[in-house]
Design a protein around this nucleic acid. Sequence first.
RNA 1: CGGGACGUGGCGCAGCCUGGUAGCGCACCUGCUUUGGGAGCAGGGGGCCGCCGGUUCGAAUCCGGCCGUCCCGACCA
Length: 557
Amino acid sequence: MTARASQLFLPTLREDPADAEATSHKLLVRGGYIRQLSAGVFTFLPLGWRVHERVVQIVREEMDAIGGQEMLAPVLTPAELWATSGRDSSPEIFRLQDRTGRAFVLPMTHEETFTWHARELRSYRELPQIWYHFQTKERDEPRPRGGLLRVREFIMKDSYSFDRDEEGLDRSFRLHAGAYDRIFERCGLEVHAVQAESGMMGGKESVDYLAPSGSGENTLVTCERGDYAADLEIALGVPRAAEFPQRLDAPQEVATPGATTIEALAESLQLDPAATSKAMPVVRTDGTLVLALVRGDDRLSETKLLGVLGTGFRPATEEEILSSFGAGGGSLGPVGCSPEVVADEALREGQFVAGANRDGWHLRGVEAGRDYDPRFADIRESRAGDACPRCGGALRFGTAIEVGHIFKFGTRYSEPLGATFLDEDGSERPIVGGSYGIGPARTMAAVIEQRYGEAGMTWPSALAPYAVHVVALPGLEGAAEELAGALEAAGHAVLLDDRSLRAGEKFADADLIGCPARVIVGRKTLEDGAVDLIARLTGTQERVQSDRVVARVAEVL
RNA sequence: CGGGACGUGGCGCAGCCUGGUAGCGCACCUGCUUUGGGAGCAGGGGGCCGCCGGUUCGAAUCCGGCCGUCCCGACCA
């Protein structure tokens, strides 16, 4: 098909919108792909919707290829369904009532709904099933940001697998993992599949698909040699070795007046900060105090500590610290303290300087096992300078955006909702499920984040709104139209810029919009029976005889 | 929810400090010229200055409240 720019709603902007920060946000707005209606709520304009639907179609094809069955579940969802699963307390869900006061939610995922339908699966003979849909999701984000990167309303492909047992679930899970690899590959997007938290609602295995990008919410940790990738929240870096001073047979008090920070402490004792320890007192939801201990140069990972403690926690208050330790926040240590001590693995070997639980004093030569008896766990946040846990290579850190997430929820939803089936032996069992999400809009934003040029986007052919952008220079609309027709006949989606604008404006718009092939029909070359062809992906420009354009375009796409 | 900033024609901004009824660039409309990288000249249209209240003879400007938007943080199936 051919779209005429003169009739298309394609409002391009010369300048960056004032409220955009992320590159993808700026370019999508400037290029006339999207417009914001409210914080985190966007309209897809004709170009943006075309790209979105191209991502959708790729996802659809790959889902169908693993046996997925497309359907459509509603947005409006009775709140009691969510009450049954216990998720109705989530602060993120939008709630509303109908005129009679009946409560509904606008959900951000559809585990409940699909599992509810899965109750119609009665026999093991009907399993496994993979169901999916593309549906609008609502999420009362406390803070939308970055254009399409984090929004309050978005379309998501979510699929749900239903199996008779863990083995089957594992098969469905791996089918999805394969499909996701192919989807992102086809979209030209670099992603890393990393182990993830499955969250409070989750089950066991959980994999995030993180796409490196200039803006994002996640920090992706990768090994320079490519054998390790993880989300920072759970990344296992190997910290550098500390330089320890002379070994001591017993802890020794040392006056450290005013040294309440690691920097000040290391400075005043002329020590490697890595040879000190840092104590963070926290209070669990049940009220018990725990002392989390990490190496002086490390940061405590709250996510990891949460996993270790198994309950929520908050930092202890000044008063709680004083009454339990008899000293202020900067002088705490594990020796002789009453709360349980959870120490990071990095503190297992060696002698560290620790707070003496006495303001203005520290202890030298504190040794785990000898001077205090901690519970060891990995609770440090990985950081620059760490080595890869697999091969020892250097770790790299970069921002990334989560474009997909797959996880096994097991019987988390089938049990409360009563989705059971009769197995071969006649026993009634809960269906074993998995949940698999992918955000097409995030995917398109991530693609832009990964590949843009000075003047605009550079779409891969698989996602471009149009394959060929035919620029008609003034007076040559007829010739351009003819060429557009030929390209269309060859099966290409064509954008014909037939507007009566100056060449420079058309070129600038074409740069912005970023179609993979551009053909310029102008007097200069047409006299020689030729046009100029620019292949956006390679940036090359060539002069092509008119009768060979169609063939040549096919080659550069 | 904490911290910071902003809100003035469609877009990007100035004016606010030091009150006197609004301006610039781009875009838009008409005409002429121009036409391979965001043209020139001439003429023209368009703004409850986010909203409400207060101070004042007089408020875009000062004060208070609210709303909206963005950034950092908290939060995040």
